[in-house]
């Protein structure tokens, strides 16, 4: 009796997992990989797939903060600028006293976290609309970057950054380890701490949250600070992979971060979703990019194809249900 009810509950849970958005998105990724490897031998080679996951790790990191922000009912349009700030200012922060380069990385991350904090304070306390606040922040940062870096690329001499971008302990890129570590932390905060619950609550219904005693402004601020931190980390990784930072290096990651969040099933209206969906969402995005590269079209057509495919995938995976 008892075993049959627990079996029934197991089947129910299993079917819930199988029908969940994170799982479906992940299944789509595997399906595309399988089909593409059959059509194009070489696509499915370990080295190629490893390369895709490595690329996805940067998107995944940027999208981690974006997932928090979107679940909390906002949006962060300054992400691309923060990635660039991180990748451009880190090489400038060469600190001779620290040969490992760790101090420079930490200083960069503190700085980008503070940029995010600025976004959060503007949204929460000055009540600037998130789009306006983060867009204004992005424009401000871009201006600052042009003054500091000008048009030239700046090479990084930081050994730890180079290691993060190029090392492959146990055959797996260091960046992927960073991504997995951050993902574990993000999922923990989201689903296993009161802070996570508060973030979902303010996204679903800010008024009811406030009347329930949820610290609305503090929670909003924290969310944007997290986004600044993860975007900064993504910038560090990107710098390591590229070897040099330049103005505009972060630009592709704005649309990518939002697309990964939404492809993963997180509601753009806030309150519902999970980073577990954003992760395969990021993988799906780099996979699409790789497929388009295979098609061998001009840069203009590649961009058009990419935009269209993202749109089609979103339409297929179910639009927002109309909310009451």
């Amino acid at each position: 009796m008892n075993s049959s009810t627990s079996a029934a509950s197991f089947t129910r849970r299993a079917s819930m997992v199988l029908r969940s958005r994170p799982f479906l998105t992940f299944a789509t990724v595997l399906l595309v990989w399988a089909v593409a490897s059959v059509m194009r031998p070489g696509f499915g080679a370990f080295g190629h797939l490893r390369y895709l996951v490595e690329l996805a790790s940067v998107i995944g990191l940027v999208a981690a903060g974006q997932t928090f922000v979107v679940i909390a009912g906002g949006i962060d349009l300054s992400i691309a600028a923060i990635v660039t700030v991180s990748a451009v200012s880190l090489p400038l922060l060469s600190i001779d006293a620290d040969p490992t380069g760790l101090t420079a990385i930490l200083a960069t991350l503190v700085m980008t976290t503070f940029i995010g904090l600025g976004n959060g304070l503007g949204v929460a306390y000055l009540r600037v609309h998130p789009m306006i606040m983060t867009l204004a922040m992005a424009t401000f940062l871009q201006g600052l970057l042009i003054i500091i870096a000008g048009g030239s690329a700046i090479s990084s001499q930081n050994p730890l950054v180079a290691w993060l971008g190029n090392a492959r302990p146990a055959g797996i890129p260091a960046g992927v380890f960073v991504w997995l570590g951050v993902s574990a932390l993000v999922l923990l905060i989201m689903h296993a701490t009161p802070l996570g619950t508060r973030i979902y609550a303010i996204g679903a219904n800010p008024l009811a949250s406030r009347l329930s005693g949820v610290p609305l402004q503090a929670t909003t601020t924290v969310v944007y600070a997290i986004s600044g931190f993860t975007a900064g980390l993504a910038g560090v990784l990107l710098l390591g992979m590229n070897g040099q930072g330049y103005v505009g290096i972060g630009d592709p990651y704005l649309l990518a971060s939002i697309a990964a969040v939404v492809l993963g099933g997180t509601s753009i209206l806030g309150g519902l979703g999970t980073y577990a969906g954003t992760m395969p969402g990021a993988l799906l995005l780099v996979t699409i990019t790789a497929l388009i590269t295979v098609v061998n079209a001009s840069a203009g057509w590649r961009s058009i194809l990419f935009g269209s495919l993202v749109l089609i995938l979103l339409l297929l995976s179910g639009r927002e249900k109309v909310r009451r």
């Binding site: 923990l188 905060i189 296993a192 701490t193 009161p194 802070l195 619950t197 508060r198 979902y200 609550a201 679903a204 219904n205 008024l207 009811a208 949250s209 009347l211 329930s212 005693g213 949820v214 610290p215 924290v222 309150g271 519902l272 909310r323 009451r324």
Partner: peptide, 28 residues
């Protein structure tokens, strides 16, 4: 509009005032 998070589970609605005042990063 003001009392509940109608898209969220009943259990999180029941526990929300608790989450609101608990230490932010203590494990649930």
């Amino acid at each position: 509009r003001e009392g509940l998070h109608i898209s969220h589970p009943i259990i999180t609605n029941l526990l929300l005032p608790g989450f609101a005042r608990a230490a932010a990063l203590r494990l649930r």
